[in-house]
Simulated assay, not measured.
Amino acid sequence: MYLGCHLSITKGFKAAAETAVSIGANSFQFFTRNPRGGRAKEIDPQDIIQLKEIMSEYDFGPLFAHGSYTMNLSSDKEDVREFANMVLIDDMKRLMQLPEDTIYVFHPGSHVGQGPEIGTQFIVDALKEAVKINPHANIALEGMSGKGTEIGYRFEQLKDIIDGVGHESIGICIDTCHMYSAGYDIVSQPDDVIDEINSIIGLNKLRAIHLNDSMTELGSRKDRHAKLGEGLIGVDALINFITKPELVNKPLNLETPNELDGYQAEIELIRNRVSNLE
């Protein structure tokens, strides 16, 4: 099982990988740049060489490169879209300096009242340009909770983007909190949810999983992550979901509200629970 959590790369990728190993992880997620801004630190090629050495030694799975929260490709404001497109293109170039199987995860965007059809087309247009820059990118649209005017909280919306771009590099990342909040009952009907992903999008397009509990109820359309076992999904349901045959080999990263020791405890919990099922 490839399992990690969100880590800072302030001290470099090698240091983040060493931290991951120290807490029992064999993957990690990082922001490509300031999550609330647009600045990005230059990538040191030597740091990436050392990162790859650690990843090879400890059998790492794919890393998750998370796009900035300020990137709204579907905004109703042209200057906001232009900024988002610039960030996306720059991230595609930066991705080429990272390990080849790195998964680029980002929030599709919010249409801000102009309607999901218009917003979706803006996202499609931006991604068409992005894959021209990096046709081998591994891009995963993150499924959202549906708060406000978010696009991508229904599987059909994610499919519309994928079909609109029409490029094999585009897939999805599911988030257990977001799915539950969006109305997908992974507690009582996990098999039905998986079947729905497969029938609408295709499990071959499922690149990554964010693992979280949810502070809010099924269908609340609120984005409130909880630590594992401290939310309304619960540890049993989460373990049951991620160990389904269709999902068991998908890379996972925690996005729970934790410090490092909390992530370590959750990683140990998951590995122990999964091991007991084998």
Rank of each mutant, 00 (worst) to 15 (best):
L232Y: 10
V165M: 05
K250H: 08
T256R: 01
C173M: 09
T243I: 06
D213G: 01
I162K: 09
I194C: 01
E156C: 04
H225D: 09
S181D: 05
E150N: 13
N258Q: 13
G166H: 15
C173I: 04
A130M: 13
I197V: 12
Y180N: 03
D160I: 00
S145W: 03
N249A: 08
I170R: 10
I133E: 14
H225Y: 13
G219V: 09
V165C: 06
C177E: 04
N253Q: 03
I239C: 02
Q189D: 14
S169I: 07
S199Q: 14
E142V: 03
V235G: 02
N138V: 15
P245E: 11
E142L: 10
N240D: 14
V193T: 10
K159M: 13
Q157V: 10
M215Y: 10
C173K: 11
D191M: 04
A237G: 05
D185G: 07
V248M: 01
D191E: 14
K159T: 02
E142K: 15
G231N: 05
L228F: 13
R207M: 11
I186W: 03
I174C: 08
P257M: 09
K159A: 15
S199F: 01
A137W: 04
C173E: 11
P257R: 12
S181Y: 02
H178M: 03
P135C: 12
I201H: 11
Y184P: 07
S220R: 14
G171N: 12
E217Q: 14
N249C: 02
M215T: 05
N240L: 01
K250C: 04
T216N: 12
G202H: 08
H136T: 13
N212Q: 12
P135Q: 09
L203E: 10
E246C: 04
D236Y: 08
N198A: 10
I139W: 03
I233M: 07
L158E: 11
V131M: 02
D223I: 04
L247Y: 09
C173V: 07
S220G: 08
D195W: 02
D191Y: 07
L238Q: 03
I197F: 02
R207V: 00
E168S: 13
D191N: 13
G148I: 15
V193G: 05
K159D: 15
F155W: 12
Y184C: 04
L247D: 09
G143C: 12
G202V: 06
L232W: 03
K250M: 04
D223R: 07
L260S: 08
D175V: 09
A237N: 06
E255C: 04
C177T: 05
K132I: 15
K227V: 11
D160H: 12
L141V: 00
I139V: 15
T243M: 09
L254N: 06
L158K: 10
M179P: 04
G148R: 11
I170G: 14
R224A: 02
E230Q: 15
G143A: 14
K222Y: 09
K147T: 06
T256A: 03
P257E: 11
E230C: 13
I139C: 07
N249V: 01
A130W: 14
L260F: 03
T176L: 07
E150K: 07
